[in-house]
Design a protein around this nucleic acid. Sequence first.
DNA 1: CCAAAAGTGTTTCACGTACACCCATGC
DNA 2: GCATGGGTGTACGTGAAACACTTTTGG
Lengths: 228, 228
Amino acid sequence: MTFSYEYARPALAVDCVVFGMDEDLQVLLIRRDIEPFQGRWALPGGFVRLDETLDEAARRELEEETGVSRLYLEQLYTFGDIGRDPRERVVSVAYYALVKLSDHRVKAATDAREAAWFSVDDLPKLAFDHDKILQVALARLKGKVRYQPIGFELLPPKFTLSALQKLYEIVLERPLDKRNFRKKVLSMGFLEDLDEVEQDVAHRAARLYRFDKKRYQELTKEGFHFEL
Amino acid sequence: MTFSYEYARPALAVDCVVFGMDEDLQVLLIRRDIEPFQGRWALPGGFVRLDETLDEAARRELEEETGVSRLYLEQLYTFGDIGRDPRERVVSVAYYALVKLSDHRVKAATDAREAAWFSVDDLPKLAFDHDKILQVALARLKGKVRYQPIGFELLPPKFTLSALQKLYEIVLERPLDKRNFRKKVLSMGFLEDLDEVEQDVAHRAARLYRFDKKRYQELTKEGFHFEL
DNA sequence: CCAAAAGTGTTTCACGTACACCCATGC
DNA sequence: GCATGGGTGTACGTGAAACACTTTTGG
């Protein structure tokens, strides 16, 4: 069965840049099992179906290819350069996603295709223009993390202030002052002190906090503006 | 002649939100001369051809439908909801553009189609989901104008500080202090004092300035960050 | 001379930044 | 008891915000 149209149409795809935080910032890639770029690492993605929105397509492809399901997902940019796919004209709506690595560490190699996490500091050359897409995603993450509380999407539900600080230092690529950092994030008033401490550490255990999203939204309504 | 594909494809379009600054913030619309939404006002736009990038498609449609040519153009967001076009599935890559009204005041009604400027405070109900696209564009403009020097794209090459301030007051929807505003923008060091004054005004003539883009880029390289 | 907008400085306060030491815990 | 990271307060300086009067020009 084929589909015919009066005018030529580009194919429409979605591609996802999935970030996770470990010792450093990681990206989830899959190895292509068909030409073109067979064997090369690429962003998870695929073609958009007629009965699903772009967001739905992105979530479906992620689920199918990597098993990753619950995540923060946001549209990034649409890439439409003429020669970006050597087979034919393909326009790709890129998304970036943030996941808690604690939830997804194992699932990386579930499906038929090989999937793996790579440090953003040590990436292989990617298929298509996926290098470029990844750079745009990184720039967006760096920019957005400062004025939207999206960093918490990369952390487990309970985290220490040191873990939060380390996340910001990694994403922003600069050291932050411990006392000033704590003063600032605590003064914002949306971190709930859980009165628990981390377990099994070989030093003084740190207090655990959680991001109180409800409280954050209340504050935002009152005119509060997150910034770090 | 028709084009056939193995899988169904959505149609791919571009739509443009063109902003201009007069007494208030204006948007350029065209009246649809065919169904669906015949007679309704809509954003200029059209389908993407296979031999042009998305940016090129946006510029071509703008030129064809409104005569507007030299402008600041930036991709906004891609809209892909299922029922957004009643005929069939259409995914639309939206752009927003900033033009100097001084250049384009006349051309509004050139082409076959009727084109006109509307105040953003007094808009008609638009075709498709164009109301939504316009709201997203407005939000983007409001956000971006504060940390990127895009406001100058809305002003003539020579402008007064009062005109610049009024622009910011309109976009940000709040009054600004005259002395603080002047102090701040002048201290940034990319406004060139032209040693000229405006003509034909019924009061004391104000000095004219221009945005020194080269200087701005130098400063940016040195780590300077625009913010207002 | 009147109307209309241009242009100009100082004070105050909040917040960002820099900085060093003691504490708790596991081994 | 020692190594490791956790946790805490103050002083200083910069920059944002508030604020009112004089100047210039055309009509």
